[in-house]
Each structure stands twice: as structure tokens, then as C-alpha cells.
Amino acid sequence: MTVGSLLQVDKLTAGFGLTPVLFDVDLELQPGELVAVIGANGAGKSTLLGALSGLVRLERGSVHFGDRRISGLRPEMIVASGLVHVPQGRRLFSTMTVQRNLLLGAYRRRDGRVQQDLQRILQYFPALADKLDRDAGTLSGGEQQMVAIGRGLMARPRLLMIDEPSLGLAPKVVDRVMEIVKTINQDGTAVLLVEQDVVLALEIANRGYVLENGRIAMSGAAADLRRDPAVRKAYLGV
């Protein structure tokens, strides 16, 4: 295990039922980093996040987070350890208010600073401040994505894993969401970003991994990946 890693994934094989979706995935992330996982539809990106957050069962391999082995732990224990997964498609509790959704993000916290954090997080998303009493399902797609990220932040994560935040959003809104993701990272939270929009992801990330058919095909500094001919051909269409 690399010294000082925040997240260390070794030879992870996982999937549903008999056929694995991921094969021998190695991945590592330093404190404070913003790392992107890119790849085509069906490459296994969401399964990877599911395996890290405990929703998908591991067949082989191990996951270490901080100084603990978290593979095999139940999802709620993984959340409690500070690894938080913002799922694809927002997955908000749509008939509950925005405020309740955000507070549920802090479900495992017992400290008294939850209300304080709610105010702090609203500074990232000023648009939500006057919509706290609305049902989450009535918000626009971009606002819902903000609630989803905000709900993740309410757990006080050391590493926030965000799955396809750009999905189904207008280009302008996507830019705004990516800006927020970057700001969150600059404020000290490590981010693992799964994204189909490769250009955007590699623009804000420090490093990237390319996932192809369940295997890591390539990895490196985001700037290098952006220039790599194979990446350009496969994902940027140039």
C-alpha cells in the first residue's frame, strides 16, 4: 500500500451475479486530489463506485480508506468512515423537502454542527437557500444535482465520489456544477469524479483513469490524458 494514500484499491473484481463487471482494478488517490474516472457507457464506472461504497459485493481484491480496510463493510459503516457516494441520477428523496434531503446526508453524524454545516453548504449553492421547503422532486435538474452533492457534503466526507453529475443537464448548468465540484475540492475535500463528459472531467481533474470493459486501460496526469492520441480518438472524437 502506497504510503499516505487516502484511497487504495487493489485488484478489485466485482459485479452482479456470476459475471464480474470489473476486473483487477487498481486505483489510488491522495488526500486533497481530484481524480476522474472516464470511460464509455457500460465500462463499469458506476459499478466501481458501488463497489467502493459497499452497494456492490466484491469478489476479490481490497479497498483501503485512510488507514482502514473498508472492503466488506456495510454501506453505512463506509459512509461513517468518511467515504461518501453521490449516485448517478441524483437519487433524491423526491417527496421530501430539500432541507430534509440535506439533513439526511448528516444521518450518521452525532456532533452538534449539522445546522452550521447546512448554512456553510448553502454558500456553495445559493440557489437552494430559498427553496429549502420545496419538495426535492419539484426542482430543476441542475438544482437537484446540487441537492445531491450537498447531501453528500453534509456527511462531512474526506472523499466525495460523484457519479455523472452532468447527466441530463444543459451545457451552461453543467459548467456551473463542475465549477462547484472544483471549488469543493479546492476547499479541501478529495473528489473521485466519474464522468462521461471526458473534456470537462479532465479539465478540472488532477489525474485520471480510463476504464474500458471493466479494466483500467490507462492512467496518468489529466493534462497528459487530454493530449493522449488514443484518448482523443476514443473519447474526444478528434
Binding site: S53, L55, R91, L92
Partner: peptide
């Protein structure tokens, strides 16, 4: 209510 609405999302908030 969260568990009733979405089991996976409920697990992801802990």
C-alpha cells in the same frame, strides 16, 4: 421514509 423511497440512496446517506 427514505428507505421506503429508495433503498440504495438511503444506504448511501448512511
Amino acid at each position: 421514509l427514505a428507505v421506503g423511497a429508495d433503498r440504495d440512496a438511503a444506504q448511501l446517506v448512511g
